Amino acid sequence: MKALTLLATTAIAFGQFSAAAYAQAPAQNWPDKPVRLVLPYPPGGNVDSAARVISEQLQQVFKQPFIVDNKPGAGGLIAGEQVAKAAPDGYTFFMGANGPILFSPLIFRRAAYDWKKDFTPVGSVSFTPLLLQVNPKLPYKTFGEFLAAAKSAPGRITMASPGAGTTNHLVSEYLQSATGAKWTTAHYKGNAPATTDLLGGQVDFNFDQLSVAQPFIAQGRTRALVVTSAKRLPSLPEVPTLAESGFPGFSAETFTGVMAPAGTPKDIVVKFSAALQKILADKAVQDKFVNLGAEARGMTPEQFGQFLAKEDAQWTQVIKASNISAE
């Protein structure tokens, strides 16, 4: 009996030691099963394309599947809330963009999550300039002609937005406020359906990421009037910037990045971030993003957190001043 008691005590002690050892260094064992990257958009858009590039590379690094899980809807709140409530064990992450990560709770008037409290930044992935493109059947050849038409007939011109609170939408609202032009905005669940309706002529224009718009412009299926980058784009040298078109100093871009549920062990976050930065520094991976019209650019968790705070402060002002709401 004493021998059995001693054996049981030893087993319990060993189990406690093993659990404590894992708790102290969970990254040594992470990942030992598939990891989910939850996305707030359907397949085919900017975030989805970036996720599929890095998921393939992460799988090679960690020898475990990194599954892209598309959960569109409510401006990203569905995906974001799911990850915010997920176990902080390093197996569920939120990969989103400006709107879903930062602004959707404010715009949808629902405190589903707060990025500063409910998430831990892991790192940035890509940065993509936007452009204003119109259906080629429209007569506008310049940004000036477009604005003049939007001023002369307020609300007649229609815009496809990939969702309330996205950079695409915020740039649109900023320009309406700054110029006095007015158009009607139709919100979609992501870039893909918005682009489909633009190509089909159901809407007149959109602000879209270069990564999505580039092939359609090359095919003549849309016409670019202006870009939001600080400088003209090498792939579209004839298209002026907003800074050149009466908005000096203005620039805007869509970022994609990875967030972990708050409470995820720091060493897992650091391990994931380090792998991500190494992947994004690889020339072959950078070339893939260039082909998508984006720039691969990794940040540490601390750098990404500082970047998010700056973006939050800048664009929250636009949201409040324009009274942007999905309601």
Results as ranks from 00 to 15, higher is better:
Met1Tyr: 12
Ala3Ser: 12
Thr10Asp: 10
Ala11Cys: 15
Phe14Ala: 13
Phe14Gly: 11
Gly15Ala: 13
Gln16Phe: 14
Gln16Asp: 10
Ser18Asn: 12
Ala20Glu: 07
Ala20Asp: 11
Ala23Arg: 09
Gln24Cys: 10
Ala27Gln: 08
Ala27Cys: 14
Ala27Ser: 13
Asn29Tyr: 14
Pro31Leu: 14
Leu37Met: 01
Leu39Glu: 04
Tyr41Glu: 09
Pro42Ala: 13
Gly45Asp: 01
Ala51Asn: 01
Ile54His: 04
Ser55Tyr: 01
Gln64Ile: 15
Pro65Arg: 11
Phe66Asp: 03
Asn70Ser: 09
Pro72Ile: 14
Gly75Pro: 07
Leu77Met: 12
Ala79Val: 14
Gln82Cys: 13
Gln82Asp: 12
Gln82Ile: 15
Ala84Phe: 07
Ala84Met: 08
Ala87Lys: 13
Tyr91Arg: 11
Gly96Pro: 00
Asn98Cys: 01
Gly99Asp: 07
Leu102Ala: 05
Leu106Ile: 15
Ile107Asn: 04
Ile107Cys: 08
Ala111Trp: 09
Ala111Tyr: 09
Lys116Ala: 11
Ser124Asn: 00
Ser126Gln: 02
Phe127Lys: 06
Thr128Asn: 05
Thr128Cys: 00
Pro136Phe: 01
Pro139Gln: 13
Tyr140Asp: 06
Tyr140His: 08
Lys141Pro: 07
Phe143Val: 10
Phe146Ser: 02
Ala148Phe: 11
Thr158Cys: 13
Met159Ser: 09
Gly163Lys: 04
Thr166Cys: 03
Asn168Phe: 02
His169Leu: 11
Ser172Gly: 12
Ser172Gln: 07
Glu173Leu: 10
Leu175Glu: 05
Gln176Ile: 15
His187Gly: 11
Lys189Tyr: 12
Gly190Leu: 09
Ala194Asn: 08
Thr196Pro: 04
Leu198Asp: 04
Gly201Ser: 14
Val203Leu: 13
Phe205Asp: 01
Leu210Tyr: 05
Val212Trp: 02
Gln219Tyr: 04
Thr222Asp: 02
Arg223Glu: 00
Val227Thr: 09
Lys231Leu: 14
Arg232Pro: 04
Pro234Asp: 09
Pro234Arg: 09
Ser235Gly: 08
Leu236Ser: 04
Leu236Lys: 06
Pro237Asp: 05
Pro240Ile: 14
Thr241Met: 06
Leu242His: 07
Leu242Ser: 04
Leu242Ala: 03
Ser245Thr: 12
Phe247Arg: 11
Pro248Lys: 13
Gly249Asn: 05
Gly249Glu: 05
Thr254Asn: 02
Thr256Phe: 00
Thr256Val: 06
Thr256Cys: 01
Val258Ala: 02
Val258Trp: 00
Ala260Tyr: 00
Pro261Lys: 06
Ala262Trp: 01
Thr264Asp: 03
Pro265Thr: 15
Val269Ala: 07
Val270Asn: 05
Lys271His: 10
Lys271Glu: 07
Lys278His: 08
Lys278Thr: 15
Ala281His: 08
Asp282His: 07
Asp287Ser: 06
Asn291Pro: 00
Leu292Arg: 03
Gly293Met: 06
Ala294Phe: 01
Glu295Thr: 14
Gly298His: 02
Gln303His: 08
Phe304Leu: 02
Phe304Trp: 01
Phe304Val: 07
Ala313Arg: 09
Ala313Trp: 06
Gln314Pro: 01
Gln314Asn: 11
Val318Tyr: 02
Ile319Val: 10
Lys320Leu: 08
Ala321Phe: 03
Ala321Cys: 07
